[in-house]
């Protein structure tokens, strides 16, 4: 069991997984989102190789209306 913060909220995952697997689980894989893990942007090409760890802080962002 690992615990991490996704967009400021605590989430528990039964076992370690990659960022790519998490996005798939959250149904975000096909959507245009960008990921920042512990303050570092993770390029889309590395989502599959990026293993999430206990205590990670993950931000998932997208485009929204604004001026």
């Amino acid at each position: 069991m690992i615990e991490l913060h996704i967009n400021g909220e605590a989430h528990r995952l039964p076992q370690p997984c990659t960022l790519g697997e998490l996005l798939q689980r959250l149904d975000l894989q096909q959507r245009r989102v960008a990921a920042e893990l512990n303050g570092w942007v993770i390029p889309r090409s590395q989502h599959g190789a990026c293993v999430l760890a206990d205590g990670d802080r993950l931000e998932l962002v997208h485009a929204i209306g604004g001026g």
């Binding site: 996704i6 967009n7 400021g8 909220e9 959250l26 975000l28 959507r31 989102v33 960008a34 931000e59 998932l60 962002v61 997208h62 485009a63 929204i64 209306g65 604004g66 001026g67």
Partner: peptide
């Protein structure tokens, strides 16, 4: 132009 915000999970 557009803004960047947290995705709604």
């Amino acid at each position: 132009t557009f803004a960047v915000r947290r995705s709604n999970l």
